[in-house]
Amino acid sequence: MKPERAVKLQRKSHYWLASFTAMGSPCELLTEESDESLAQKLLHSVSYEAWRIEDKFSRYLRGNIVDRINRSHGVALTVDDETANLLDFAQTLHELSEGRFDITSGVLREAWTFDGSDNVPSRRQVKALVDRIGWDKVCWHRPRLLLRAGMQIDFGGIGKEYAVDRAATIAADISPASSLVNFGGDLVVTRPPSENGGWRIGIETPGIDARQAGRLIRLQRGALATSGDENRYLLKDGVRYGHILDPRTGWPVPSVPRSVTVAADSCTQAGMLTTLAMLKGADAEEFLAEQGVQHWVLR
């Protein structure tokens, strides 16, 4: 059953705040647009785009392109342009991350459930799953995709950031005012606001009371994305197994930061850099420093 798709628009001191839920996250649009009808139009266009992307690429929905790919049982499929663009992007990330980022790694969920228990899978279980993982085992010749039987793809690591960038582009086309698109903490500011100093964004620190915003960042333009440890882990024999898994081994990446935030021109770039940094574990800070991007790492 789909969650209720309601939108809410409120007038704040010098901006409109619109809120809705998409992709399992609370979503917000803040805009300095003063015209209420344009603000309404912004809200509807942005929420529509979020839900469109959710419907098309959610792995939980039957009948969409992801579901059809995952049920193709080794039969090649022709995909549409947007899906092909996402697959091309996923392929580039797989190369750039030397296999650490892999959209076929979702099958690991069959063995790993990070519920705080001591239910750590056996080596054999994990090994069996790793055999079903690997973008290098996928035959992708745009626009045709052939996925081996037993393998699955999942755009969960890209979809939300992609949706934020798409929604922000749409918002920027509708209104010349500064708008902030925030889907569950991944966000973009379309243009510098007239408010001095930019939009003020509080970043929560995982495990700490949300009201005590950990950091405050002023964003004039561009994107911020945050990845966190989210307190999802298993604990067995005194060993903590975090939820960031290395698809090459099927086991958790050791020494993952509690939280990584990156500022970049687009949300997709920021989000991928936070993800790649998490996958680097102990080397996250070194990796981000080499990228020459503003970043905040919490250990």
């Binding site: 091309d88 750039l96 243009r191 405050l216 561009g222 500022a263 080499e290 020459g292 991007v293």
Partner: peptide, 26 residues
């Protein structure tokens, strides 16, 4: 990585970003 990622993002979104990011921690 970041340069290659910027190019790949442009290809994915079909547009360039709205401008260089301007963020400052307060």
């Amino acid at each position: 990585v970041s340069a290659a990622l910027a190019t790949a993002t442009c290809a994915l979104l079909g547009t360039g970003p709205h401008g260089a990011v301007q963020a400052q921690e307060e």
